[in-house]
């Protein structure tokens, strides 16, 4: 198995030197995110999110299933993430790489275990029928910070998705076609956003937000924080890497709080714009 090509020594030194003076190759400030672009597809729950050249596609479908006996009152959510070799030549099929494991686990924690979606509201008939929401995440191209992009795409897709209206009379379940009755949005508790910060071996280099692919490769540690606009942390993940002073960690939390508020505004307005332009027919 060939190793992915590492950056050359002059390239490495140049990037480190520039970052030390708080300059980034793409001209961003250290704590500036690439502005996310959200494109909605024709279907509800089909979102393409891009951060610079990183592109992720999230797609949701829901179907009725019988719930597992241990949780008769809760709907199910499953997340499938596909890191194909299309995204970058560093991925290949076979045994999941460390990065792939981290990304799938983080997606699971941010989108599912943080209780973003109210699972009890997905129950139609206790023990008989619940909604099974399947979120599929395809990474189309990776140029750094795939995790944040995938989390954003996933959460926006969940907010964008509408499930068909259901009527229960006795034991009989009627699913109304979207053309008969307006479909319902999923009931969400909160919307977590994920932010990844990169740290460098030289302690005098300040941390940076939303690393590009090159910055990610050269970094000596990543810290991912998922939080919502209400200042609630959902996931904090710094697995090893360069050691940080406790104050630095807390300072990063404050930055993330700010960024979450900004990102929340962008997402809400994008969703509103899309909804305004969408014609949902109800007879």
């Amino acid at each position: 198995m060939p190793r992915p090509p590492s950056p050359s020594i002059p390239e490495k030194e140049f990037v480190y030197g520039a970052l030390k003076q708080s300059l980034r190759l793409d001209g961003r400030a250290m704590l500036e995110m690439r502005t996310p672009t959200l494109t909605f597809g024709p279907e509800l729950g089909w979102v393409e999110c891009s951060l610079g050249k990183t592109r992720v596609l999230a797609q949701i479908d829901g179907k009725m299933v019988k719930p597992p006996p241990e949780r008769p009152l809760e709907g199910m959510i499953t997340i499938h993430s596909e890191l194909s070799s299309m995204a970058s030549n560093e991925y290949e099929l076979g045994r999941p790489s460390d990065q792939e494991v981290t990304i799938t686990r983080m997606l699971d924690k941010v989108l599912r275990r943080s209780d973003a979606v109210d699972k009890e509201s997905l129950c139609v008939l206790a023990g008989q029928r619940v909604w099974h929401i399947r979120l599929t995440i395809h990474v189309l191209s990776d140029s750094g910070n795939m995790l944040d992009c995938a989390c954003l795409a996933g959460i926006v897709a969940l907010k964008h998705f509408r499930r068909p209206e259901v009527e229960v009379v006795g034991d009989e379940i009627t699913i109304h076609h979207p053309s008969e009755r307006a479909p319902m949005p999923l009931s969400m508790h909160h919307t977590p956003y994920c932010f990844t910060f990169a740290f460098f071996p030289d302690p005098s280099t300040p941390p940076l937000l939303d690393p590009s692919h090159l910055e990610e490769t050269l970094s000596a540690g990543l810290l991912s924080v998922a939080l919502n606009a209400q200042r609630e942390l959902c996931v904090v993940q710094k697995a090893g890497g360069v050691p940080l002073a406790p104050e630095d960690v807390l300072r990063i939390m404050d930055v993330a709080v700010q960024k979450a508020k900004e990102l929340d505004k962008i997402v809400e307005s994008a969703l509103q714009d899309d909804w305004a332009g969408r014609n949902v027919e109800v007879r």
Binding site: K109, R113, S114, D115, H190, L223, E232, L233, C234, V235, V236, Q237, K238, A239, G240, G241, P243, L244, A245, P246, V249
Partner: peptide
């Protein structure tokens, strides 16, 4: 600090 992990709200 070398490692921080948290998984709940």
């Amino acid at each position: 600090v070398t490692l921080v992990t948290m998984e709940t709200r």
